[in-house]
């Protein structure tokens, strides 16, 4: 999910687990209205896990393990189950066992954030929503976190919604992009199709990935490359192919002439 600050992204995702109640309209989860009478919001929140921006600011327990157990505890699970889930979740985000008894406040920034994400994963949600999970991290930390989230999505079949400002991340990880503008959905489509609207996105204060930009421009000036390239690898393959094709067609001409 992308959109400039104040476009309504954060407000929208807080509706998805019932933290905010819509003024009008309905939200269906698994085919059921979450506003129906008697619908358990607590259950919804365990199924639709929401990780806020800078989630490490919400850590509060004395140890990492206790903090991650907070969610399962609220679900009313036994202590053994709480612990089991916490350990699984910490494993999923790559926190080593030696850190389980450490105070969350002693960890590095990236570690803290992963513990905080584990705190939501420990509820074993089917949908994981993350509000700018990489904000403030350096490139290395960013890659690690996104890599782990992508792995969860593939291996645990978790549906992931993530809010970001980084188009390169969108291109690399997302199946679909939702572009928000002034509280409305501006686009909801595959990255390649959304990035084709370069000018409209610019008007919304959004960019396309650098590679998409250059490939669109090369396409416009007549190079036989496709304009819907969104990742670095695609761009590289395309450029190499056209130059190789060009070269071999000339080689053929030489052969014919001869």
């Amino acid at each position: 999910m992308i959109g400039h600050t104040g476009s309504g992204k954060s407000t929208l995702i807080q509706h998805l687990n019932g933290l905010l109640h819509a003024t009008a309209g309905d939200i269906l989860y698994d085919g059921e209205s979450i506003y129906a009478e008697g619908y358990s919001l607590r259950k919804l929140r365990s199924q639709v896990g929401l990780v806020f921006q800078y989630p490490e600011h919400q850590l509060f327990e004395a140890t990492v393990l206790d903090d991650v157990m907070f969610g399962p505890k609220n679900l009313g699970l036994s202590v053994e189950e709480q612990k089991e889930r916490a350990i699984t979740a910490l494993g999923q985000v790559g926190i080593e066992e030696s850190l389980f008894d450490a105070s969350p406040f002693e960890l590095s920034g990236g570690q803290k954030r992963r513990v905080a994400i584990a705190g939501v994963l420990a509820m074993q949600p089917k949908v994981l929503i993350l509000d700018e999970p990489t904000a403030g991290l350096d490139p290395q930390g960013k890659k690690e976190i996104l890599g782990e989230i992508a792995k969860l999505q593939k291996e645990q079949q978790i549906t992931v919604v993530f809010v970001t400002h980084c188009m390169e991340d969108v291109a690399e990880y997302a199946d679909l992009i939702l572009v928000m503008n002034h509280g409305k959905v501006a686009f909801y489509d595959t990255p390649a199709r959304v990035f084709a609207h370069k000018e409209e996105l610019k008007d919304l204060g959004l960019d396309v990935p650098q590679v998409t930009l250059v490939m669109q421009e090369l396409h416009e000036i007549g190079l036989p490359v496709s304009a819907d390239v969104i990742t670095l690898k695609q761009a590289k393959d395309q450029i190499l192919r056209v130059f190789a094709a060009n070269a071999s067609s000339r080689d053929e001409e030489v052969a014919c002439d001869a």
Binding site: L19, R42, G49, P55, F70, G71
Partner: peptide, 13 residues
């Protein structure tokens, strides 16, 4: 407010 929401998202009330 933000912290409250975040803890509610983890099942707190």
């Amino acid at each position: 407010n933000k912290i409250m929401m975040a803890q509610m998202a983890r099942g707190a009330s």
